[in-house]
Write a protein that binds this DNA or RNA. Structure first.
Lengths: 203, 203
DNA sequence: GACTGTTGATTAAACATTCAATCAACAAGC
DNA sequence: GCTTGTTGATTGAATGTTTAATCAACAGTC
């Protein structure tokens, strides 16, 4: 339907956005390899072409680097909001569901790293702030799309906010489950989600 | 309906299960306060009545303590499987939903810590193994209850496995969202989940 | 008097961060 | 167009702290 999106890692790499972006790309790679709790500045340095100490010329601390990476990833994922590519209401929702709870079109590398950053929000207010905002943006975009579908007559007259809340929560759960405990169950999950959408949303 | 369950922390504390359990209780507290990535053995020692170095008399390493805590928590949560307390099929599911996606009866402290441990499964195979097994147990218990409800005529003839997969995935998402980004949305989510259950499961 | 639990001090490595020193580019003044 | 000064990028080594883990000594108990 839509052609495969490029992986986040490639986006980080392609352009030469200067040293700061090289550092973020290195951080992303190191994070993917070592995990948040085991990540050291040296690990980042190893993935970084230039010297490790140069990181401190561009950032004040390790924390700052990680938070900057989070902001970059959030920007990227926000560009994946429902409806960015497709215009038919039903297709918008379908594409979002496919990319969020489907087996094929999920970027596992990015999803795992993003999830690990999200987990920091449990104890770190800087992270929490980012994710509260992010959740609002995604959920509101979903709700908007549902409202548009209702107006266009493609959807039934459901509570758009409520439907969006539920749908987004399912995607969060799907991602978290699959990056932490595999995805043998993922097709069944998608079927049930689609069945609910068929039953109550699509006209 | 059911009286408030005691918090996990209290269960860890009440009995005198000996020094090892005291260490686990201290670890749980320290984890809740500092978060996994910032947790040090000294932090555990601070929550522990006896000496920090005693930890190494009972455990070989910090990792081993954390993994043992995970096993204890998994045991605890498995005892919260659907249907442990109630016998009517519909009530079993309702109780499970309430405790997993409801605002009131969720043990936030335990949920946050448990979630943080789950996030480690992204990069640590020992954690992953535990959660793969845990997910299976919970999901199967749910599926069993649904099957029983179908047999008893209380539920419609749905695909029990598929329904259980979806329902469990929603609970994972609900917990993850709420411990990382608050729960202003949680009532709407619960309503939509219940609406789906009313539509397709309950007869 | 051996065995188990407990303690405070100690060690060695890992770690985030700093620092002094080059280097390359560019601009100003002559 | 050659010198001199300035700036930002970059490096490798050094610093001081944190941290997991060990150890020697002591106490109670069977």
């Amino acid at each position: 339907m839509t052609e495969q999106e490029p992986y986040l890692i490639d986006i980080l790499f392609d352009g030469d956005g200067g040293t700061r972006e090289e550092i973020l790309a290195a951080t992303f790679k190191a994070l993917h390899e070592h995990g948040y709790s085991e990540l050291t500045v040296d690990d980042i340095g190893d993935e970084f072409e230039k010297s490790q100490s140069l990181i401190y010329h561009h950032y004040d601390s390790k924390d700052e680097v990680l938070l900057d990476l989070l902001e970059l990833m959030i920007e990227h994922f926000e560009s994946h909001k429902p409806g960015t590519y497709v215009s038919d209401p039903r297709d918008r929702i379908k594409t979002f569901v496919e990319m969020s709870v489907g087996l094929e079109s999920m970027d596992r590398t990015a999803a795992g790293t993003f999830t690990e950053l999200r987990a920091q929000a449990i104890h770190d207010d800087d992270y929490r702030e980012q994710f509260v905002k992010y959740d609002e943006v995604i959920q509101e975009a979903l709700a908007d799309d549902i409202r548009k579908g209702i107006e266009a007559g493609a959807f039934r007259d459901v509570d758009a906010e409520r439907m969006a809340t539920w749908l987004y929560t399912v995607t969060v759960g799907t991602t978290f489950r699959s990056v932490t405990a595999g995805d043998s169950w993922i097709d069944m999950n998608e079927e049930e989600v689609n069945s609910h959408l068929e039953n109550v949303l699509y006209r």
